[in-house]
């Protein structure tokens, strides 16, 4: 089966792209493709705890990130440089993956059959 990696690199809610990319990810999981999810750069902001987009009348999809393991997503990588840029530590974000440096992220992108970002 072909593998796919999804790269989240934008903050949530200003644009829909995070949710749209997540929807593709869930669909690929339904097809049982091996999936890696990467939160790179500003994408780490998708993982900040205690989001309340409902006060903007926008649907909260950050809960779905917590369920990625249940959807069979084995590897979730969180960009160390992205966390540093936004002065975030692991306690500020959803505990759903491993912190990774750019070498590890490069390696994962190189080793999957498809890479998608939106």
């Amino acid at each position: 089966m072909k593998s796919v990696c999804f790269i989240f690199n934008k903050p949530p809610y200003g644009q829909e792209s995070g949710k749209e990319l997540l929807d593709i990810c869930l669909m690929c999981s339904a097809f049982e493709m091996p999936i890696t999810v990467i939160f790179q750069g500003d994408g780490v902001l998708q993982l900040i705890e205690n989001q309340q987009p409902d006060i903007l009348n926008i649907k909260n999809y950050s809960k779905t990130f917590k369920a990625l393991k249940l959807y069979g997503v084995e590897t979730v990588l969180i960009d160390a440089a992205g966390l540093e840029k936004h002065q975030l530590v692991t306690e500020n974000i959803l505990n759903i993956g491993e912190i990774a440096n750019s070498k590890i992220i490069q390696n994962v992108i190189q080793n999957t059959d498809f890479s998608i970002m939106l």
């Binding site: 089966m1 072909k2 796919v4 929807d23 593709i24 669909m27 690929c28 339904a30 097809f31 493709m33 498809f114 998608i116 970002m117 939106l118």
Partner: peptide, 19 residues
């Protein structure tokens, strides 16, 4: 549905995105 995208990926050598 979105499944048509995944199905296309599995049946193609390359997927190219234009955004």
């Amino acid at each position: 549905g979105l499944g048509q995208l995944t199905e296309a990926m599995l049946a193609s050598d390359r997927l190219v995105t234009f955004g």
